[in-house]
């Protein structure tokens, strides 16, 4: 009897789906309730064991911009994550220690606080774990962390800053990571013209940009929102999107190195699209120079289709539709805010 009841429940459950509201059922009117899911939640997500304080953020900013925290004392986090270049570097792939080319593009670091996993392949969970990884990486900043802790411990200004941020905890790798993570959590984009439109200002977007948004969420058109989903334009997911580089010899397998499942071969994390227009080139291999190139890639159904994400459906778009989606993507940039660089203690 229990078995019969189970199957009845399963059947009813299956038959009832058609009546459910899909997330794509939007009303495209500024301020409409159906759009509110696109607003980023506040306050900024922060771990309980590392609450945000002004002192940590201030210290984290100093550490983020300090080139002395690299093997050759000439490369800071900001060398690749440059605020003047959309917190990225405008390079196809990043340049690391001795300017050697790395294998992936520098990701923008906007709205990291909302990420479930860090890095293109999601190999690191928290910002605290992530903060020191590029610093230690042989091919990136190439730093000996014990030497760097000794360096910071010998600079009065840093000792005072650590004391203010972490009373009685000292200068160590843990407090250094917590400070950098705290600073990174403050790099937020949540005030674009799109956000203003969602909040109710109907003049914030042009008719073309609204058309672009409609195409963006339409599963039989752009189908972008299936992965670039609300509120941060990402599903915290991993997808092979058919880039040409996956067809090269020994391609970068991406997420497969973390989760050995066939679907993950050549799959990379869905990036946020907030402020995306500021951080060309695009894709994890930097192979798209413009946002038009990006949308055209999807419209064509990708180039190497041997392991495409099942959520990638190729819907051919007209040039006008591609232009509208690009207009919409350009409306996701928050207004420029003056940024004050820190003075680094010596």
């Amino acid at each position: 009897m229990k078995t019969l009841l189970f199957y009845f429940t399963l059947l009813v459950s299956q038959l009832s789906y058609a009546a459910e509201t899909e997330p794509t059922d939007y009303t495209f009117i500024a301020g409409h309730p159906s759009l509110q899911q696109w607003l980023l939640p506040t306050p900024i997500p922060t771990p309980k064991d590392n609450p945000l304080t002004a002192e940590k953020v201030s210290l984290g900013k100093m550490l983020f911009f300090d080139p002395r925290l690299s093997g050759d004392n000439n490369m800071s986090c900001a060398t690749c994550h440059n605020p003047m270049l959309g917190w990225s570097d405008n390079l196809t792939v990043a340049r690391g220690y001795k300017s050697k080319a790395l294998t992936r593009a520098t990701p923008l670091i906007i709205n990291l606080a909302y990420n479930n996993l860090q890095m293109w392949d999601g190999r690191i969970k928290t910002l605290e774990e992530q903060a020191l990884a590029p610093m230690e990486a042989e091919l990136e900043m190439h730093a000996d962390l014990s030497q760097k802790i000794a360096l910071l411990s010998g600079i009065d200004g840093y000792v005072t800053a650590f004391d203010n941020a972490f009373p009685d905890q000292g200068v160590n790798t843990k407090t250094m990571a917590m400070a950098i993570a705290s600073f990174e959590r403050t790099l937020i984009s949540n005030n674009s013209r799109f956000d203003t439109w969602v909040k109710g200002d109907k003049s914030a977007l042009t008719a073309d940009e609204i058309s672009g948004f409609k195409l963006f969420v339409d599963p039989v058109k752009g189908n972008c929102a299936v992965c670039h989903s609300p509120p941060n334009f990402t599903d915290d997911g991993f997808h092979n999107i058919g880039l040409a580089s996956f067809g090269h010899d020994n391609p970068d397998l991406g997420r497969y190195n973390q989760r050995r499942l066939n679907l993950m071969k050549g799959a990379f994390k869905t990036p946020t699209l907030r402020d995306i227009a500021l951080s060309a080139p695009f894709f994890h291999d930097g192979s798209a120079q413009t946002l038009s190139d990006v949308v055209e890639h999807y419209s064509e159904g990708g180039k190497v289709k041997t392991n495409l994400s099942p959520n990638f459906t190729a819907n051919t778009l007209t040039p006008e539709e591609i232009a509208s989606i690009v207009s919409f993507l350009n409306a996701l940039t928050s207004p420029h805010k003056p940024f004050t660089l820190p003075t680094l203690p010596q």
């Binding site: 399963l10 599963p219 299936v226 989760r259 066939n262 679907l263 994400s309």
Partner: peptide, 25 residues
């Protein structure tokens, strides 16, 4: 029974030592 009620694909798996499975998408 892992039942997909989302309008897109899922790929459920477990890498646990006790029981490995990859249900595909």
């Amino acid at each position: 029974h892992f039942l997909n009620k989302d309008p897109f694909f899922h790929n459920i798996f477990s890498l646990s030592d006790e029981q490995y499975f990859d249900l595909g998408s």
